[in-house]
Amino acid sequence: MSTCMYKLRPLVRDDDPLPAPTHDMYRMKPVQGGSGPAPTRAAPTVRLADLSGRVEELIQGSKGDMAVLEGRQEDILRKLSKLRIDIEELRSILRQPSQVKTPPLSTGTVTCPPCPELGENRDIVLYASPEHPPYSILALARIWGASCPIQLTNHTHSSVQEAPAAAQTFCHSVTGAPRFNVTLVWKQVGAETELVINPFKFTTVRGETNILRFLSRVGPSNFAYESGSDLSRVAQFDEVLDNCQRLARSHTVKEKQAIIRTFNASLGKSEWIFGPQLSIADIAVWSVLKQQEPAAALTQTLSKWMERCNSMLL
């Protein structure tokens, strides 16, 4: 009982004789005779006043104990906070080596906007045909780098007889916790590359360029093509992206050549499609042209630009 934190005193003392009922209806004669008059006779009434008096006494007395109790509680709280400090220290010691390993986040200002639809795991599934490998996702994984690590794995669906030759390149593993988990599934979906986020709400995005748009909105802010630039520029961006979409679906050589010429025009003499900085547009055009290889005939400027992209993105 000494270890008990809050001790209670007995309300009724157990060594007191119990008062017996006063009525004689069921009275029994003592079976063992000769023991004299029954002791119950001595306490004919319940001493209620007596009992309440004792309760009062107890309450009075506990006021003195209160201080002792408070002191004990303080003591325990002090011990607990000391324990917490100890644990914090231990934790920081344990964490140190792992912190050394991870590269310091130099692009600390870059943040990804929240996207509740992605769920807590941020698992994304991508369906793509072996004929249309979505190189753009590979490029994103490369250029986002440490600011938004993407874990990329690929699987072949049973409806596809053999994994495409490009499958081996579609692997990107990161150390530590990834920001996005992308599962790429090779499946016959034609040019309609499909992105599934939440099967429960049937959230899907179709078309490679639309997927790029989506990812650039939920990815790091410095690569989001809509932020920071004026609206006419965003419109130009959209046009290039739409052309990529058209190229993936065109069948005749003439049609293809016409679209490729528009790319050539937007590139002009600059290093990248939109000025000195690599942008989402470069990634989209590079991906769709790579899918057309080696059939599509490119101009010299475009070929040089392709090489630049290959060295940057692959």
Partner: peptide
């Protein structure tokens, strides 16, 4: 029957998260 190659591997907490979302 549909399957993936290599097979899909999920971790238990991921499965719990999927169920909770549902």
């Amino acid at each position: 029957f549909q399957f993936l190659d290599p097979p899909l591997k999920l971790e238990f907490p991921q499965a719990i998260a999927m169920l909770r979302e549902a």
